[in-house]
Design a protein around this nucleic acid. Structure first.
Lengths: 213, 213
DNA sequence: ACGGTAAGCTGACGGCATGACAGGACAAGT
DNA sequence: ACTTGTCCTGTCATGCCGTCAGCTTACCGT
């Protein structure tokens, strides 16, 4: 469906080629999580992969191009986050459990992919449409179903709140908390306490009620 | 108080030197807001300032060093954000106005400094302590007084909520919304509607009540 | 087995950015 | 005019970027 993997100069990549390509991506991933994005050099990635810079340029136009590749792969993965909200109940204790699981699942996903997500976030903030699109895909995997949940849970009476805005704000908060959990620590919020606090916020935002004891 | 401005090799900078230094910082600021952080080169900054790369290296160890300088300057400025919360009332309509002004003031500050804040946020996320500290200084200028406000407004009965966590979450949300307002737009939240929605969230978080009509 | 064809890799190269230094230009006081 | 210390830049070694030609390797049909 996605067509064959091709090199920059148009050749079709075979088994061996795809292996090297993948190894380069893996090494880049690792580089991203160990050194600042600004300092990631093609030559280092190539060295780590046991190959030469020229080989890197066979498969990717530049570092950014390879990063986009990794990011897109991660965005595919993010589709699984939908299950954290889809078809879940928000009533009573079950609802609070839903909230906790959502927070857990989202934080886990973000932390697992923190290095690449940092770069995606930067790119999106800088106005790069490709990174923006990828970031939206990840966030939307939760925002979309969550918006529906908010709509379903707010009575027809209460029209002061825009469901999309609430849902977007909650997910933005989760993303921010995942990326900068150290900030919360420095505010005196223990790592253990972060999760329930976020879960509370989410529950409150979706249902508009305080959670049951 | 902050001692004299010095060059990398220890000389004391005079009038002319400080001017060049400042011009370099200004140009770097501009570069940051027009091109991706990864692509900002010393040679470009120097050229824009009408000088040579060697001059740049007289005043700063590298691009990052100069960026830190700009960031620290901005962090000083952020102290003014305190006034958005300090001594303000959170009761009734006045309280909602406080909330709106806080949102407005914070978003305005973030947007005014968006380029440098992007880099600070990235650095903090990457675990760089210097950037982390600067980011905390900016956020704390609001989080500190806001935490007090939350404490004062939550009855002694309600101990489920950690004031620091709530306050931190609200400010994180504001920062995220400021940095990625385009995301909200793409969720169908109009730019005009973003402000009141955030104000609502803040008011709710601080007082625990729905705002008065 | 053999040769043809396309994939795969790298050495080498020009170009550009980095970062250091020494020396020259400049301003200010004597 | 001379001295002193500030300020700037030409120059250079080093290292990364990004490209290309050309060599090696794997696959396939006969």
């Amino acid at each position: 469906m996605t067509g064959q993997v091709r090199t920059v100069d148009g050749r079709v990549a075979g088994r061996r080629g795809q292996e090297t390509r993948q190894k380069l991506l893996d090494c880049l991933r690792e580089m991203l999580s160990t050194s600042p994005y600004r300092d990631v050099k093609v030559i280092d990635v190539a060295r780590m992969a046991g190959t030469s810079p020229a080989t890197f340029y066979q498969y990717f136009p530049d570092v950014e191009g390879a990063v986009l590749e990794i990011a897109e792969e991660m965005a595919e993965d993010s589709a699984g986050l939908k299950e954290l909200v889809d078809g879940k109940s928000w009533a009573g204790k079950t609802g609070y459990a839903t909230s906790e699981e959502l927070v857990d699942g989202f934080l886990a996903f973000w932390r697992k992919n923190d290095a690449i997500l940092r770069v995606v976030t930067l790119g999106a903030a800088e106005g790069d449409k490709r990174f923006f699109k990828i970031r939206m895909k990840v966030l939307n995997s939760v925002v979309s179903p969550l918006t529906e949940a908010v709509k379903a849970n707010q009575g027809k009476t209460d029209k002061t709140v825009d469901p999309a805005a609430v849902s977007g704000a909650l997910v933005s908060l989760l993303a921010s908390a995942a990326e900068h959990s150290k900030a919360f620590t420095s505010w005196g919020v223990k790592v253990k306490d972060l999760r329930p606090n976020l879960a509370l916020q989410v529950y409150l935002g979706v249902t508009g009620k305080k959670p049951p004891k």
